[in-house]
């Protein structure tokens, strides 16, 4: 994805916060090589929310883990470049990475219950981060912690600081997580399915907070979700992932209104929504089958076995990435066969 987004065109000249170029990741597990990411390209600018969308096993979380260098254990090989504010992260040592994690790059995870330590109060956990990374002490750290909780719209921050995670509801825990993540004013925030475990009403509030983090604090955000409906509400640009590859990318408006890859189309059709009157009980468009095992080698397009418009070319050769200017890219033979004319025309 390149640097185009209606909102940030003014700042387009500014260097991106994060630039992932041609990232390939292979894990090694008991003599077996498992390629999990193929040629991933992703760019995030300050104040921009980039959505990573795809099913379980599509490599969204792995991309995020690669950025923080938190890929699962065992030996792994990482090719390509991850450039964070001018620094190359792929060559950093574990000690150097500790400086980035939590301070410059913060994360919010799906399960707020398992991510907060149950034996410490919210205050202890929040102040711990502030003391470690900002070198503040006692009263100053406490004041900062209160300010952070007020930032995430908590009415009684003093009370919240003394609370243990089990005393809080799912939504409140996620707010505490966000407060911890934002406490060191990170340049990049990675939100990995932050609302999946929450009710729809609470989900809307948490999405609002993530958006505020980008708008007010100017952080770049990678927002990971399997639900395009959620992605649609907060993201400026979208990258659709499937089986370790980015199959379509572009600005949120374009990807959502004129999806080009059959996988994006299928994901959109799978969301149960407001069917118009009279069109009662339409068959929901499910995507048959599931994401292939990363170990499975495929000559052609990895989506081909589940694709509704799969042709001869699709199973024989991997489709080329079709870049259609304006940050739009699609990885599909249909797109390549239609030729550039169709793309320039639209």
């Amino acid at each position: 994805m390149t640097s185009t987004d209606s909102k940030t065109t003014g700042a387009a000249a500014a260097a991106p916060i994060l630039q992932i170029k041609d990232l390939n990741v292979t894990l090694r597990k008991e003599q077996e090589l498992i390629p999990i990411l193929h040629h991933v390209n992703l760019t995030v600018h300050a104040g921009e929310i980039v959505g990573l969308v795809g099913e379980s096993g599509s490599g969204k979380s792995m991309t995020a883990s690669a950025v923080t260098q938190l890929l699962p254990g065992g030996s792994k090989s990482l090719q390509g470049s991850i450039n964070f504010c001018g620094e190359e992260l792929t060559t950093k040592s574990e000690k150097e990475m500790a400086h980035y994690r939590g301070k410059e790059i913060a994360m919010i995870f799906q399960e707020p219950m398992t991510c907060l330590n149950p034996v410490f109060t919210v205050g202890q956990q929040l102040e711990d981060v502030i003391c470690t990374h900002q070198h503040l002490q006692g009263g100053e750290a406490h004041a900062r912690a209160i300010a952070m909780l007020e930032n995430v719209h908590i009415k009684e921050p003093e009370k919240m600081l003394k609370a243990y995670p089990y005393e809080l509801s799912g939504g409140m825990r996620q707010r505490a997580m966000i407060a911890i993540a934002l406490s060191c004013s990170p340049k990049l925030l990675i939100a990995d399915e932050p609302t999946t475990a929450l009710d729809v009403t609470i989900q809307a509030q948490i999405l609002g907070l993530v958006k505020e983090a980008a708008d007010k604090a100017g952080a770049g955000v990678i927002f990971i979700s399997h639900d395009l409906g959620v992605i649609a509400q907060v993201c400026d640009s979208i990258a659709v992932m499937y089986s370790g590859e980015i199959v379509e990318a572009g600005t949120a408006v374009e990807v959502l209104t004129t999806p080009r890859h059959p996988y994006t189309k299928a994901l959109l059709a799978a969301i149960p929504g407001f069917t118009p009157k009279g069109a009662e009980r339409l068959e929901l468009c499910a995507i048959p089958g599931m994401v292939p095992d990363p170990r499975e080698h495929m000559d052609g397009c990895r989506f081909a076995p589940r694709c509704s418009v799969c042709g001869e070319n699709c199973t024989a050769k991997h489709p080329p990435l079709h870049v259609a200017g304006d940050g739009r890219s699609v990885c599909c033979w249909k797109e390549a066969e239609a030729g550039d004319t169709a793309i320039t025309a639209s």
Binding site: L207, G208, E212, G229, V230, T257, G273
Partner: peptide, 11 residues
């Protein structure tokens, strides 16, 4: 309810 084409309400 999240939906495509729906704007998020401000907090």
């Amino acid at each position: 309810l999240p939906a495509v084409g729906k704007k998020l309400k401000p907090l």
